[in-house]
Design a protein around this nucleic acid. Structure first.
Lengths: 227, 227, 227, 227
DNA sequence: GATGAATGAGTCTTCATTCAT
DNA sequence: CATGAATGAAGACTCATTCAT
């Protein structure tokens, strides 16, 4: 029995339809084969949007801003992305992968766990310095309900990476036995904060800031005067 | 574990949020206390929208058409209705109640079931004749997935009403024993069709058309030459 | 082209030019010689669109839905049809012809006008039962300004057909002398309504429903118990 | 007023006038003498808005959400605040003052600078733990152009406070001579990050988290095992 | 002090249609 | 014949803010 006309209680109406429509739009995009020209457009949109998001913020950057800035029609945006939100998620996903790759390249083939940690921190700070736009987006994404969970899990990957080295360092007696996950989070906190203040805010030399972070964190995790 | 950044499979994203937002908007409206002026506005919107929907069709009537036609801002619409769809549903609900009331008044106090059927048909045709706009909306609503079910159940009420009289007529041997529900539906079919063609289409006298419908249906349900 | 004239009100732009362009596009299509493969494609488009229109409604089915559902590019659609509207009209036209042909085959060679009426009704109900999609589209088309007129004239043909038999039956004294056109309309109303409710809605046996309709209409037009 | 200057770019309209209007509205509020009941209302608005902002985010919380949640009319909001933005700034200002007061109380009368640093960190973490809503708002405010600058200066005050103690500790040879400002920022980074993850995210015991932060930072700034 | 009503620019998104390749 | 890309007007809906009462 449909109740709408009888009981008067509200229904979500065609919201279901909207959801379906959204999913369909998404599927349309996923199965889209892009020509070289298309790939270029997509990259262009991502690049420009990243810049705008970082500059004005996600909420204050409208889809219209993006397409107007690129001098294309509004439909172009929705040809490549099913929503503004999806675009943002896409940016986050790619970025986090990029940063992780950079970190892994930096420590490849290094035996000493403490050294790996140092190099990992340095790689992160330098990557963040090179991608200030993305760093800002990360910070924003962590504050927004919609993206928070994704960010948490993305960060968990980085933490997991660091944890491995920290555990090894602990096992080797190089640093005191403290919760490696917490140490990893602390390192991330320091890296973000100092990069934010000194590189994004004041334009200091990334290498110097990297030294700063490494030095604070080396001590923070308790690396002994060596020996 | 949030999977978004790891597995790459799409999610409905903030659709949930939208649904919630919709419900919240709906609740806001329901608990709204309207001043006399507000009630007037609301009625005005309903009246004008009904007319526009009937004239141009639901899909081809935009909310902008409605508010512009009334010379008010767009916000006014959403102050009184949570969506275009809700407004339409509201129109349907009220109308169906109105038609039923009219029918019930017409047969109040009449003993003879056959007479009640005749009067009911007549009342329906006359009501439809007076509310051609609504008749059109009914026809449309029956064709649209979103409203179909509501219409079916609304119609079921009318059919249920008629069925009672038909059953009584059968019990009294006044008409042959055939499925009363089917007879009721057939009557509705004839009423709608002839009203549509002769009143809405050609502007014939409603009384004459009512006679026509009553005559066809009397015979159709098998009222014997009386006795 | 279609949407440009949707509401019928003149637009302040180069209308003449657009009309010409539309007509030219139409002519291009009409004079198109289709290869066998082309005919197949066209039929495929019609079939799929019919299904989608019936399922989701004309307005809620986009051209993109149709071509994506078929896995072809947008160009294909506009190669075979000049607009979404034209496709719909084409579906209506073909269907109405098909139904009429079916009715005429059913009564071919039958002498008794009452029998012809019965067979005609039966043929209509069975055809509607087999083409539920089209029945829905008919109902929709009757509610939409753009298609209303063409539906009216299509229906007029069927009514004209029925009228002939009804007049003959009246002339032979087989049924009372009442406006044959009105009777024809009433018959159509009953057929549509009961098919809608019992076949489309509840999946009843079409033969049974046909019996129901025939029985109600036989009585409705006043076929005497005969002898 | 706020939104008018959102993106900072001049608008081609009567800006002067709007600015004046904004300033006037602001002045009106500032010079407003609130009755006890008025003060209560204001506090209520702040409390509820804080909660909503923290829950759904600043941009996704509308003024309507706030006043509806409190069951009052829109006018109430604009009686106490000249804009949504002003309300947010007010929340930030008050909070930062509150946190600073707490820190100062915690270290009042303590002679040892290292001890003061420890107590300051602990006070900050505990305050953040008690005011998770505000901590979230801080994080958001740092990402938003409109509030970024005011957050920076607010943070500068805390950094300045910490710097004093760090400098004293350095002067006393208790910790190595490194840029005290950088150390202060690093401490803030660790505090925020671990509070976010462990208290807001996982609900760990604030005291334990405070220990964690203190321990990491003690080492990070290079407090020697001492004696 | 407070309310309900109104404003209207702005947001995201859709879609029929066109066109270069 | 067919495709992917692009257009841009139009649509539903939101929301900070104002104001008469």
């Amino acid at each position: 029995m449909a109740t709408l006309f009888r009981s008067g209680e509200p229904r979500p109406l065609n919201r279901r339809l909207l959801v379906d429509a959204g999913i369909i739009a998404r599927l349309r995009q996923m199965s889209r084969k892009l020509t070289p020209r298309g790939k270029q457009r997509r990259a262009q949109l991502i690049a420009f949007a990243t810049h705008e998001f970082a500059e004005k913020g996600y909420h204050l950057t409208s889809v219209a801003d993006i397409v107007d800035g690129l001098g294309v029609g509004k439909g172009v945006f929705y040809w490549y992305f099913s929503s503004k939100e999806e675009l943002f998620v896409e940016i986050m996903r790619t970025s986090q992968r990029g940063m992780r790759r950079r970190q892994q390249e930096a420590i490849a083939g290094v035996d000493d766990p403490v050294r790996r940690i140092e190099l990992g921190i340095r790689a992160a700070v330098l990557w963040l310095a090179e991608h200030n736009d993305l760093r800002r987006l990360f910070e924003f994404a962590r504050t927004e309900g919609t993206f928070k969970e994704s960010m948490r899990s993305g960060q968990a990957v980085l933490v997991g990476d660091a944890q491995v080295h920290l555990e090894e360092a602990i096992a080797q007696g190089r640093i005191p036995d403290r919760d490696p996950e917490a140490l990893a989070f602390a390192i991330i906190g320091v890296s973000n904060q100092l990069t934010n203040v000194y590189i994004d805010g004041r334009g200091e030399d990334p290498e110097v800031v990297a030294d700063l972070v490494v030095s604070f964190c080396r001590d923070g995790i308790g690396v002994t005067a060596q020996g």
